[in-house]
Design a protein around this nucleic acid. Structure first.
Length: 286
DNA sequence: AACGGAACCTGAAAGC
DNA sequence: TGCTTTCAGGTTCCGT
């Protein structure tokens, strides 16, 4: 979604939209495709903001356009004369003939143009948790997001009201980097593990952004690019850290990949000198 | 309230 | 070859 936001900003900012083509479908479930057209024609974007997986482009007339791309969505720039890719639901064309295409082949995406206040109030934007890429993202914040949840830590990471922007791949990758088993109840992570997880989240997102094609995002399996991820999509391969075979399991209805060798299901036993047993109430630091 | 599972869609790839 | 099954980078609804 951050790649989509950057494409949107780079190609559309401050440029009048001279033509809007839409394909009426479920993507326009919040207001009609016709309304979408009317609100965007002859307008221009003055900013493009992302929070989690939602993007809002602010228009010069106080309106806005919200995009959520669902599972396999994209925002793609097309030069003049090049037709929009398969699954394009809206095309915003500029005076030079080039265009910005919003693709959501599976119709899980969402496109909505409305007054900015309406978008903010009724899209769920305000309910999103902190985004690791925006503002401060410290161990305290992550600990709060994971606190008091019995659900598997991977599921909690993907709960957009707790943390915004982490999806199935980034969750699996962050947990591998942090050496934490995806099935661990969120509340059982130690302070040290929360710190590892915080670094894992930041590292995997930065890595993924660095890998991504700047102009058009390629999803796993598209084109011939090799899988850039550490565990995602690598069932049966050896873990690059400990050489154990990576496993695929379904957790919360989603495919989960992890290394049973170095992602521990239980709290890591203390090493070295005898570790004192933790009492139920952990003493808080002053 | 929190949790797990099914449903919503389309299309590509694997299986038979 | 052609039909069937599986699977997919997300969210929401529904029953427990």
């Amino acid at each position: 979604m951050e790649i989509a936001r950057r494409a949107w900003e780079r190609h559309a900012l401050e440029r009048p939209i001279v033509q809007v083509s839409v394909k009426p479908c479920r993507v326009f479930r919040d207001s009609s495709a016709a309304t979408f057209r009317r609100r965007l024609r002859d307008r221009r974007f003055v900013s493009v903001e992302r929070r989690g997986k939602m993007i809002i482009g602010r228009l010069d007339d106080g309106g806005g356009m919200l995009a959520h791309l669902g599972m396999t969505g994209k925002v793609i720039h097309r030069e003049a004369g090049v037709e929009s890719p398969d699954g394009t639901r809206a095309t915003l064309r500029f005076a030079e003939g080039d265009a910005l295409c919003f693709v959501s082949r599976r119709l899980f995406g969402r496109l909505w143009a409305a007054p900015l206040g309406v978008l903010h109030a009724r899209s769920g934007w305000e309910e999103l948790g902190p985004d690791p890429l925006l503002g401060p993202f410290d161990t305290e914040l992550l600990a709060a997001a994971l606190a008091d949840r019995d659900a598997p830590v991977k599921n909690v990471l993907m709960d957009q009201r707790r943390l915004a922007g982490i999806g199935n791949i980034q969750a699996a990758e962050a947990l591998w980097r942090a050496r934490i088993h995806p099935g661990r109840p969120a509340r059982t992570l130690s302070r040290v593990e929360v710190g590892q997880l915080r670094r894992g989240i930041i590292a995997t997102i930065e890595y993924t952004l660095a890998q991504a094609d700047v102009n058009e995002i390629r999803y796993l399996g598209e084109g011939h690019a090799p899988n850039p991820f550490r565990v995602y999509g690598r069932a049966g391969e050896r873990c690059r850290r400990c050489k154990t075979e990576i496993v695929r399991e379904v957790q919360g209805g989603r495919a989960t990949f992890f290394c049973p060798g170095c992602q521990l299901r239980r709290v890591r036993p203390a090493t070295g000198r005898a570790a004192p047993r933790r009492s139920k109430q952990r003493p808080r630091r002053a």
